[in-house]
Design a protein around this nucleic acid. Sequence first.
DNA 1: ATTACCTTTGACAATATTAGTCAACACACA
DNA 2: TGTGTGTTGACTAATATTGTCAAAGGTAAT
Lengths: 100, 100
Amino acid sequence: MSTVGLQLRELREKAGFSLRKAAVAIDIDVAILSKMERGERKFSKELVLKLAELYRTNSDRLVIDFLSEKVLYELEGEEFGLEALKVAEKQLKYKKHKDV
Amino acid sequence: MSTVGLQLRELREKAGFSLRKAAVAIDIDVAILSKMERGERKFSKELVLKLAELYRTNSDRLVIDFLSEKVLYELEGEEFGLEALKVAEKQLKYKKHKDV
DNA sequence: ATTACCTTTGACAATATTAGTCAACACACA
DNA sequence: TGTGTGTTGACTAATATTGTCAAAGGTAAT
């Protein structure tokens, strides 16, 4: 499973940025970026977007994975996680359709 | 859409508990329970379980709805919420299957 | 071996979020 | 009036999340 962090790390390397330079570019501490890439800290959506822009990559997939990770984190260890996701999906579809 | 709060309120009334008595029974402040039932504050899973027990109701459905609400709250206003849910679901299924 | 990078780590402070407390209010009705 | 109901808002406390910083260890070149 490729986490958002690892994806962004790969993108960074491909784009030729050192951790430091990337951190400076998006105005955060190196330590934080290091931890985020390795999953020790959670990303914020804002940072994901900034990094995607910095690496000149479309952010949609990253954002989706970011959100998915957030959700899975919430459901960590829950017996009924899957059922909850299904219910949530249903509601979201309904919402989207009905524009509630 | 019947929120966990409203479900629990209905259960409470059916079980003949006043807000105060229910709150005392599960050892929280009345104000909190009032707010939770009306969705002004989020439940904790622990309280959902305590209330279900107090009202002598199976808690599975409540827990599922509780988790679903939590997830939907996270995805509030997100363009790719639905896609994220699908990814999360896939991962969770995989996890369950492979016991990762 | 020193210089110049790189990434990682951990301790700490600052901030934001969430949870809990409390007193007062408004309503109903016996 | 007095008792029980639920609601509200202001306040504090507790917890979680984020940010800062200094130091460490790695690698490579000179």
